[in-house]
């Protein structure tokens, strides 16, 4: 009925809907592209994993970790491991885009730039989560600590989201500089610090099975930081890839 009366309005509506669908298709295309490339080469994951295990190994000697003493430092060791392995993954994943010219190709696609951001963010997040999913059981096996607390998993998820949100933005800047890999941790660590602090504190509180009253503030803080950082990075990303 409306079709013959106001075809223009319909076309605009239809256009918007197609635009939204195209937006999400672009995000999923970028994520799939990263995952498919990774499944083929397995460069990134294997490097991140081996690196993570080496970090834990070094901690084992540096802190003289034993089954009895491990309780108090577990959350710290885990987060340092995730943060370092995450940096490795972020730097590599953006460097691949830059070197293979994928970024330039993606910029030609007539879709909002933020789709590119969310696509890379999701990709980086998935890599980080997979590494964590392997490191966690291994860690509990090696040091006989139980890490399978759903609250702890939630904290790790939230922390990883915040970390990848800032990391994706800053890594895409770092790869476009002369100093590249050297620069990423220097740019990233001081800015992402609040996320790491909140994540370590929340994990620690859960690890020592304190009451929820002491855990909640950190959890809320973590959620707030995630929202702030995702929103800020989403708005700033446009200017980082603009050429």
């Amino acid at each position: 009925m409306a079709e013959d009366r106001s075809p223009t309005v319909l076309r605009i509506d239809g256009g918007r809907e197609a635009g939204i669908r195209r937006y999400f298709r672009a995000i999923s295309a970028i994520v799939w592209k990263d995952l498919a490339a990774e499944l083929r080469s397995r460069e990134l994951m294997s490097a991140m994993l081996v690196f993570a295990l080496l970090v834990i190994l070094i901690f084992n000697f540096a802190l003289e970790l034993s089954v009895r003493s491990v309780e108090t430092v577990t959350s710290g060791v885990l987060w340092v491991t995730f943060v370092f392995a995450g940096t490795l993954g972020l730097g590599r994943s953006m460097a691949i885009e830059k070197d293979r010219g994928c970024l330039d190709g993606l910029l030609l696609v007539p879709v909002d730039r933020s789709a590119l951001y969310f696509g890379k963010l999701l990709g980086n997040l998935i890599f980080m989560l997979v590494v964590e999913a392997i490191v966690l059981p291994l860690y509990s096996l090696l040091f006989s600590v139980n890490l399978f607390d759903p609250r702890l998993l939630l904290v790790i998820l939230l922390g990883s989201v915040g970390y990848s949100a800032v990391g994706t933005l800053l890594a895409s800047m770092a790869v476009q500089t002369r100093t590249r890999d050297m620069l990423l941790p220097i740019l990233l660590f001081p800015i992402v610090l609040p996320v790491v602090v909140a994540a370590v504190k929340a994990s620690n509180a859960i690890q020592q099975s304190l009451e929820m009253a002491t855990i909640w503030p950190w959890l809320n803080l973590l959620i707030a930081f995630d929202v702030i950082f995702v929103a800020a990075a989403f708005m700033l990303f446009d200017f980082v890839v603009e050429e």
């Binding site: 800032v166 933005l169 800053l170 800047m173 476009q176 500089t177 740019l187 800015i191 800020a232 990075a233 700033l236 200017f239 980082v240």
Partner: peptide, 8 residues
């Protein structure tokens, strides 16, 4: 990049 990092 300076502007983006300064704001972040």
């Amino acid at each position: 990049f300076g502007a983006v990092y300064g704001i972040a």
